[in-house]
Design a protein around this nucleic acid. Structure first.
Length: 255
DNA sequence: GCCAACGTTGGC
DNA sequence: GCCAACGTTGGC
């Protein structure tokens, strides 16, 4: 573990939710409490999730600047919002300095945190943030290694706390400080995630791309996967089919 | 290090 | 609201 937990910082996680830490490096203390137990969603049984769409009536254009998420221009008509239950979240496993701060945070870093749990902070893109706001406790996400020697999926994690204010937006020392965001009206959110397991084998981006290209032609689960159709999004939704297909690759020989 | 894709900003 | 300039992401 990082000598001092201190800066595991990335577009991601640092702190451990629960955690009481020396006041000094605060940040880390994490966001307040982490009641990991009583989580709404996971009470009772694992709700078998299936993707579906919800009628959200007409969209209210709130207004923040560029806050348009999809291309759904919505002129009054009823809008539909797809509900996802599976996710892919990107983080960089290799050191890189942003504003003097190392943003490295690979799956091993998550695993090394107390309770193998951390908060996914640093997301500064509205679409990605909105997807995090849609996440529910108990849902699974792939931990994707980006901007590194071998990009691809390294493991699985679970959402253990739903979206709440990302405190790093107010921290001048943080790599993702956002001076335009005010505490009275925070712009950015984060969720807490817990390491679940490594995938049985690393699933390289290049392999996923081969399937994507193949599926675009012949049809298949990955024909529209966000990893390629919305490549720059750091938090992406996956349909159940996409998630299951990718997970099944663990058992297959690489192509 | 290059650069394509695409998100954000800000003038008009 | 349009759109050019600019900035960022992230594969290669």
């Amino acid at each position: 573990m990082p000598g001092n937990v201190v800066h595991v910082n990335n577009p991601i996680c640092k702190s451990t939710p629960a955690q009481t830490m020396p006041p000094k490096k605060s940040l880390r203390g994490g966001p307040v409490k982490s009641k990991q137990s009583e989580s709404p969603a996971s009470s009772g049984k694992e709700q078998e999730d299936e993707d579906f769409t919800v009628d959200v009536g007409r969209k209210k254009r709130k207004a923040p600047q560029a806050e348009k998420s999809g291309k759904t221009t919505n002129t009054g008509a009823a809008a539909e919002k797809k509900v996802y239950c599976h996710w892919l979240m990107k983080s960089e496993p290799e050191s890189r300095f942003e504003k003097g701060v190392d943003v490295k945070f690979g799956i091993e870093d998550l695993k090394a945190l107390p309770n193998q749990t951390g908060c996914w902070d640093g997301v500064r893109n509205y679409q990605a943030r909105n997807f995090m706001k849609d996440m529910k406790v108990g849902q699974r996400a792939f931990f994707y290694h980006s901007n590194c020697k071998e990009p691809g999926i390294a493991g699985l994690m679970k959402i253990v706390k739903e979206a709440y204010v990302d405190h790093t937006q107010f921290d001048k020392k943080d790599a993702h400080y956002d001076p335009s965001s005010k505490p009275e009206n925070p712009k950015w959110s984060m969720v807490d995630v817990q390491f679940e397991r490594m995938t049985k084998r690393f699933i390289p981006l290049a392999e996923l791309k081969k399937y994507h290209l193949q599926h675009k032609v012949k049809g298949g689960a990955l024909k529209d996967v966000a990893l390629f159709t919305r490549a720059r999004l750091s938090v992406q939704p996956l349909t159940r089919e996409e998630f299951d297909f990718i997970l099944s690759l663990e058992e297959q020989h690489p192509i």
